[in-house]
Every structure is written in C-alpha cells, then in structure tokens.
C-alpha cells in the first residue's frame, strides 16, 4: 500500500525521474556482467596495444577466432568427444559403484563394517597422487583415465548417499513399520527417496571432481582429448589454443552443473524451495 503511494507521489512530483527509474531497474540483472565484460575489454585493449605479449596470453578476439577454426577443421569436436566419453564413462562408473557401496553400507550394519572403513581410509589419499601408480598398472590407454575419473568421483557419491540413508528420520521408519511395509518396500518408498537429495548433492560434487580428474589424466600421457590438445599447444607456444581448451573446460563444468541442477528441480519437486523457483 505504502509503495503505491510513494510511486504516485514520485510520478506527480518529477516526471523525468519516474520515467528513467524503470529503465535502470530493467538493467539491474545485467549489472553483474558489467565487471567481466570490462575485464575482457581491457584484456583485448592490452593485447591490441602491445602491452601484453601474445606469447604470454592470446587476445580474446584471437581466442574466438582460434576456437572457430579448431571447430571447423574438426580438431576441437574430435578432442571434445573423446574427453566427454572419458568423463561420462568415469562418472557413470563412479555412480554405479558409489551407489552400490552406499546401499550396502547404509542398509546393513555388517555392510557398514566391511565397506565403510576401507573407503574412509582411501578417501584421505589424494587421488591425483595415484596417477603414476595408475599408469604403471593400466598403461597409457583409456583405462587409467576413466578409472581416475571414476575413483575421484566415487567418493562424494558414496559419502553423501551413505549419509542420506543414515539420516532418514527414524520416525518415518517407525511409521512404515506400523503400516506393515516390507523391508524391500520400505527401502524403495521411504529410504531411497529420502536419501535422493543427498545423492544429488554428491552427484554435483562428483561432476566437478570428474572434470578435475580428467584435466590431469589428459595432460599426462594422452594422445587425444582437450587436455592433450592443450599440452600439444604448449610445445608451439599457442596460448590461444591453450585458452580455448580452458574455455571449453569452463563451459563443460558450467553446463554439467546446470544439468544436475535441472535434475534436482525435476526430481525434488516436493521441496517447497523448488516449487518456489519453478513458479
């Protein structure tokens, strides 16, 4: 009510101000992009004027041009698809193994004793430090790369789902018992849907980690993939190609994070937060 009154007052008082205000507020969502755009402009100017050596860093325009030519000659799509397949297989493997282990250790005490301790010990090892060992074990083909991704991404899946299963409200489990639900049905209808939000949190971490693992795996002993493309470019001082690779990694991370978010709002429609966002 008071807002309307103030609005009327402003319109009556000074017309130009009232007319300019809505236009400014329409620009407000874009204000966040002002700084990045300015930075890119400054970067371009610094490169064009010779302030920045293109041996150190290519200009934004050059990056776009290189990206386009790499796309047209098929280098980028070929390497991108190799990287995507690696990340997807690794992540898929991590999901399957992580979910299975979490179910085993989340649903039975015996399972927890058997599975949880070794995983908690393994978790404290930096997975990236195992690259040399993986190369020794599995050579330099696709296997060590996919396994690196899988190993790194498995832990967040396992840890979050395990936590989610263990954190199910015991009152809901009691209710299921009074309704006479069988063990299998309780797992299907109460435990798994209740742990799904935690699984999705784990999945988001896992997606982030799989790109990280992929970068390292592809920069050590690879003959294809975005990481290989970047390492190759290093030999020829092609900072533009390196930056194209970086941009692709960034976009891939962003896109996969959005995909998991979309999955969350699709699957967790019952949570008031997501209803609010959807409407």
């Amino acid at each position: 009510m008071s807002e309307t009154l103030i609005g009327i007052g402003a319109r009556n008082g000074s017309r130009p101000v009232a007319r300019r205000l809505p236009r400014l507020s329409a620009l407000l969502p874009f204000r966040r992009f002002a700084t990045p755009v300015l930075l890119v402009l400054g970067w371009q100017i610094a490169c064009s004027s010779g302030l920045l050596s293109t041996r150190l860093v290519a200009s934004p325009a050059q990056i776009v041009a290189t990206g386009w030519s790499l796309t047209r000659d098929g280098t980028l799509p070929a390497n991108l698809s190799v990287s995507l397949v690696r990340a997807a297989s690794g992540l898929g493997l991590a999901l399957v193994v992580g979910v299975c282990l979490a179910l085993v250790s989340g649903l039975s005490r015996l399972g927890e004793d058997v599975v949880d301790a070794p995983l908690q010990i393994l978790r404290t090892l930096p997975v990236l430090a195992m690259v040399p060992l993986f190369i020794l074990w599995f050579g330099i083909g696709e296997t060590p790369k996919i396994l690196m991704v899988a190993l790194g991404a498995m832990f967040p899946v396992y840890l979050n789902l395990h936590k989610g299963i263990r954190a199910i409200d015991p009152k809901l489990l009691e209710m299921a018992r009074t309704l006479g639900l069988s063990r299998g049905r309780t797992i299907r209808e109460v435990i798994l849907p209740g742990a799904l939000p935690d699984l999705l949190v784990g999945l988001r971490f896992a997606v982030g980690i799989s790109w990280l693992m992929l970068v390292v795996a592809e920069q050590v002993n690879a003959d294809s993939g975005i990481g290989h493309m970047m390492m190759d470019a290093e030999d020829f001082l092609r900072t533009d190609i390196i930056l194209v690779g970086l941009a692709v990694y960034g976009l891939l991370g962003l896109a996969s994070d959005q995909a998991v978010r979309a999955l969350e709002s699709a699957l967790l429609g019952w949570r008031p937060v997501y209803r609010g966002r959807a409407s």
Binding site: K171, G180, E189, L196, W270
Partner: peptide, 24 residues
C-alpha cells in the same frame, strides 16, 4: 488390523497426499 496416528503426521514429504494415504 491396527493403525497408529502419531503426534506428528509422519507423512512422506516426497509422496503426494493421496499416495501417502494408501502407502503400502
């Protein structure tokens, strides 16, 4: 055939009301 109603409703938040009613 017995049923219990608790102090809290203990509905499963991820099932719609009618699915909760005929749960199991």
């Amino acid at each position: 055939d017995v049923s219990v109603v608790f102090q809290e409703s203990r509905l499963l938040p991820w099932k719609r009301v009618w699915e909760n009613v005929v749960l199991g």
